[in-house]
């Protein structure tokens, strides 16, 4: 696939503070790429550099193979959906959407046609004469998307576009956005701090922390094979602890030896291990039990129970549909493929 956007060793300083450190990645055509990370991790700055609102201190930004480091925003072939929507309060819905087309001095009939089509795409037909202040948050969101899409950008940048919506609406919009992206076939670069949103929508996720890319991968990769403790911790809940790779496929922790499916570490290398709560199996205690613990809390979560199990040196978080009573002694069991072994952070 062809790379539409490329970042090469982008560094960004605000005064003395380094916001981005050697950020490099490629965005393929028609890809749904998500920049994921906690607030202040540099994801929005990265987006703003791509949009042209900020200029990187060093490094190159490429668009369709051409360096566009100093191209002003109004000349870039991409459009942005802002976190605050940034709709023009003095213009109605139709004129907001037509804004970009009017700048390009497109014929009136064509504008009307395109605006109508855009309104149709975002399910706002018939609202073109409404004032922005008369719209709900969800509708404003749709206008913002329509206003960007109507210009047929090659890349659409979205800065936490669903952040201001309530949970139910957010879920709906997630599905709709994903569908939209597939249907119209343009590249999305999406910024969010919501890991679930990232996992649901993206083709590729870039996890960032403190201005450094932590991991680039598909949602499945990121979830199942987090490259370090930060990613493991940020993406979903997890039991994270230290251990030792005794040999290929042999893992030691808590003074016990376990089978695993990981290899390629040096002998006796100290590692971080993550086990997802749904991968922890609880059974009745038997003579085969390696890890014995006591259930210390049970919370009903609807689909499953969330239980905490205390062992001698660790507190396990367990998601299971089978209920073990508070105070009950249980055997904690983990399948070899459920251990995700990661190199220790340097």
């Amino acid at each position: 696939m062809e790379n539409i956007v490329e970042l090469k060793n982008i560094n960004k300083y605000f005064d003395e503070d380094q916001i981005l450190k050697d950020v490099s990645f490629e965005v393929e055509k028609n890809e749904f790429l998500t920049l994921l990370g906690p607030s202040g991790c540099g994801k929005t700055t990265t987006l703003r550099i791509i949009a042209g609102f900020e200029t990187q201190t060093s490094g190159d930004l490429l668009f369709s193979g051409e360096i566009i480091n100093n191209l002003p925003p109004h000349k870039r072939k991409l459009n942005t959906v802002f976190q605050s929507y940034a709709l023009f309060p003095h213009l109605d819905v139709g004129e907001n959407i037509a804004f970009g087309l009017r700048i390009k001095k497109i014929k009136e009939e064509v504008i009307t046609e395109k605006v109508n089509k855009a309104l149709e795409i975002v399910n706002l037909k018939g609202l073109e004469r409404r004032k922005i202040s008369q719209l709900s948050g969800g509708q404003q969101q749709r206008v913002a998307i329509a206003r960007a899409l109507v210009n047929e950008p090659e890349v659409l940048l979205l800065d936490e576009p669903l952040g201001a919506l309530d949970l139910k609406l957010r879920k709906e919009m997630q599905t709709e956005l994903k569908k939209l992206q597939k249907e119209i076939g343009i590249t999305f670069i999406y910024v969010t701090h919501d890991q679930e949103e990232a996992l649901t929508m993206s083709d590729k996720i870039i996890v960032m922390n403190q201005g450094i890319i932590q991991q680039i991968g598909t949602p499945v990769d990121i979830y199942n094979e987090p490259s370090n403790v930060f990613v493991a911790d940020f993406i979903g809940e997890g039991n994270i602890f230290s251990g030792t790779m005794l040999d290929d496929f042999i893992l030691g922790f808590s003074g016990k030896i376990f089978d695993c499916v990981d290899k390629g570490f040096s002998k006796n290398e100290e590692v971080d291990i993550v086990v997802r709560p749904e991968d922890v199996k609880l059974r009745e205690v038997s003579e085969k039990t390696k890890i014995k613990g006591v259930v210390t809390s049970v919370i009903f979560k609807g689909v499953h129970y969330e239980m905490n199990v205390s062992t001698d040196d660790f507190q396990w978080m367990v998601h299971s549909t089978k209920l073990y009573e508070n105070g009950q002694e249980v055997s904690v069991e983990i399948d070899p493929e459920s251990f995700h072994v990661m190199k220790k952070a340097e």
Partner: peptide
């Protein structure tokens, strides 16, 4: 005036003059 609006206008292709004429002045 919300600075985001000015960025939005630039994002939609407006140069400095258009940003002023179509966003700042009317507002």
């Amino acid at each position: 005036i919300d600075k985001n609006l000015l960025e939005a206008a630039q994002d939609l292709g407006a140069d400095k003059k258009s940003v002023f004429m179509k966003v700042i002045f009317p507002l």
